[in-house]
Design a protein around this nucleic acid. Structure first.
Lengths: 194, 194
DNA sequence: GTCTATAAACGGATAGAC
DNA sequence: GTCTATCCGTTTATAGAC
């Protein structure tokens, strides 16, 4: 899958971009977007501000590229886990893979939080809950559960529970997020899939 | 309850401080902490930067005062609602009052988010979940429920669900947060209090 | 491809006039 | 009690040398 543009990116250029994205994730995770300056990014990467702006036209563009990388990695991992599961176990697979993935990537979590709480929300709320709502709906159908259910709220509660568990394991590494995920699955099972 | 210090605050001084806290909440809610400068605060209040710094020694101090006001108002309201409820209904009262209070104060929500996601967390995680854990524990005792339960995770899931519902009603005012709270209460009932 | 140099604006905070 | 004037550091971004 070579570059589609007229000029290919050189190896070093590609490596530089990857490095810049890495240090950006690290700095935004540690200090927040507002406190992450081009100067700091450049210093961490071992080059100068102007050097950074050669590879990305602006600080904003660099941060968005970093966020996009983090998000697509998450979506890929969770999507694969959900696809591999039975429809009846979709929500459980979603919760397990989401918590498992994020638990091991604390910096990614902080990057995603920064993007969500940013005033210009880089992440769409509906894009997230509607996917989970579909999972819940499919699981209920596969289990033969009937009755009314507000799928949007159901999805939001699941997402919120995941966020809280992941956030807690971030501030307290000794917290057992895996066990917590299993409890959340039980709650969802008894409260939303019956 | 007069001022305890040697000199009382004048009426105008007290009014100024209140006004400064109000505009700070508004600006932090709208633009985030990092993008809220003393200059903007001063401009919104109709005075100058130096004028602001006369009343509060630093930007940080002003923001912290604003946050403290928002938080104590929330704690007072929710605390009263929980105290007025039967122990068996403690979690339900907590969820209802929390969602109800925050739904009507969108700017307060964004202020609290800013404080939580700030790098120097102004809000303690344990302070929040341990109070909810006590509510869950008391409700289970009152209902005669036995069996093991990870109260910390239970509390985190409740808090996370509330956050997600409130956040959604923030981005979509037509979303019925009150109905959503009732669904969350049902889920908690079936998943954690049985 | 990365650097130096610099522009132009904005940040928080202080001193002192009124 | 509030303002004017100012300081100094930092910010993003550009122009042009190497």
């Amino acid at each position: 899958m070579p570059s589609a543009r007229g000029r290919n990116l050189t190896f070093t250029e590609e490596a530089r971009r990857g490095q810049l994205i890495d240090v950006t994730i690290e700095l935004v995770a540690e200090h927040g977007y507002g406190a992450t300056s081009l100067g700091r990014i450049a210093e961490s990467a071992g080059i100068t501000k102007a050097g950074v702006l050669y590879h990305y036209p602006s600080k904003q563009a660099l941060v968005e590229a970093a966020h996009e990388g983090v998000l697509s990695e998450l979506v890929t991992a969770v999507g694969a886990a959900v696809d591999a599961a039975e429809p009846a176990d979709g929500p459980a697979a979603y919760i397990r893979s989401m918590v498992g993935h994020l638990r091991e990537r604390p910096r990614h979590v902080r990057m995603l939080i920064e993007a969500m709480t940013s005033v210009t929300p880089l992440t769409d709320s509906k894009a997230r809950w509607s996917a989970v709502a579909d999972l819940v709906s499919a699981a209920r159908a596969a289990r033969g559960v009937d009755g009314e259910l507000d799928l949007r709220t159901a999805a939001l509660v699941i997402g919120g529970g995941i966020d809280a568990i992941v956030a807690e394991s971030l501030t307290d590494p000794s917290y057992d997020a895996t066990a917590a995920a299993e409890l959340l699955i039980t709650v969802v099972d008894q409260g939303l899939l019956t």
